[in-house]
């Protein structure tokens, strides 16, 4: 068990170094691409550096995801309160309907209204990123046992104490899973932003598609995938740290692992 986990750590470190070198060292990238695409003459996209595109990509995703998570979470909490419960069926229906939209369509609809560039892309990613957070916030809170909420009320908790000390702690895992989904989807979708001039890793992918240069497409796609995998891993670490196995039933881990 211990040998296996240290092997995993070593693998992660190696992958991390390879990925870092690929992004930041032009010569390393060129070497790899030459092996993979021997027939291609132009291996390195020169107009914009890969680290710069990665930076643009991360700021697109970070900004839109933070806003989307805040909005989705707040709306989810609002429609599960007694004052907002009337809106619950409406919001649920709209959200399920909106999720069937492909992200490209959202972008296509957004740019005539919002124009070209960074901001409309953030707006489109924001709109699309709300849904998983909203859905999971609603489902997470709704799945808290009604008897437990009544027990908390019966002990004399105020409505905000019930929310902060009972509902949210018990729904946290599902809500974080929603944020995780939202961010991962946004990392992929953000590549489309390049079509309306938002920059990011999509730039090199689009350039590759236009010039029929597979090495360019590969460069952009692998980097975006690397970011998505790293983010996913980061979330799973976060979940392990915050939702430790001590609380048994909630985290789904073996509760007997807790001792002393």
């Amino acid at each position: 068990m211990k040998a296996r986990s240290s092997l995993i750590v070593v693998t992660f470190i190696v992958l991390f170094l390879v990925f870092g070198s690929f992004v930041f060292s032009v010569s390393f990238r060129a070497t790899i691409l030459r092996v993979l695409f021997p027939a291609t003459r132009e291996l390195i996209y020169l107009r914009t550096g890969l680290p710069h595109m990665l930076g643009e990509h991360l700021s697109l995703v970070l900004l839109s995801s933070v806003l989307a998570s805040l909005a989705g979470f707040s709306l989810g909490v609002f429609v599960t309160r007694s004052c907002g419960r009337d809106f619950l069926p409406l919001v649920r229906g709209l959200s399920n309907f909106a999720q069937t939209f492909p992200p490209v369509a959202i972008l296509a609809l957004a740019f005539p209204v919002l124009g070209f560039g960074f901001r409309p892309t953030v707006a489109a990613l924001f709109a699309f990123g709300i849904l998983p957070v909203l859905n999971n916030t609603i489902e997470g809170i709704e799945s808290v046992d009604a008897g437990l909420i009544e027990a908390a009320q019966g002990q004399g908790m105020t409505p905000s104490q019930v929310l902060l000390q009972t509902e949210l702690p018990l729904a946290a895992r599902v809500i974080v899973a929603g944020i995780r989904t939202s961010v991962i989807i946004n990392i992929g979708t953000a590549t489309i932003g390049a079509t309306i001039g938002a920059g990011g890793l999509g730039t090199v992918i689009i350039a590759g598609l236009v010039r029929n240069n597979t090495a360019f497409v590969f460069t952009g796609a692998v980097t975006a995938a690397g970011v998505a995998l790293a983010t996913d891993w980061l979330f799973s670490r976060l979940e392990q740290v915050f939702f430790n196995p001590q609380d048994g039933g909630r985290s789904g881990h073996d509760s007997t692992r807790h001792s002393s």
Partner: peptide, 16 residues
């Protein structure tokens, strides 16, 4: 409510 003890079926303890 804080001045009245309340015990329910299957205890209703907060799992977290």
């Amino acid at each position: 409510r804080r001045g009245i003890g309340y015990v329910i079926q299957s205890a209703g303890l907060l799992p977290h």
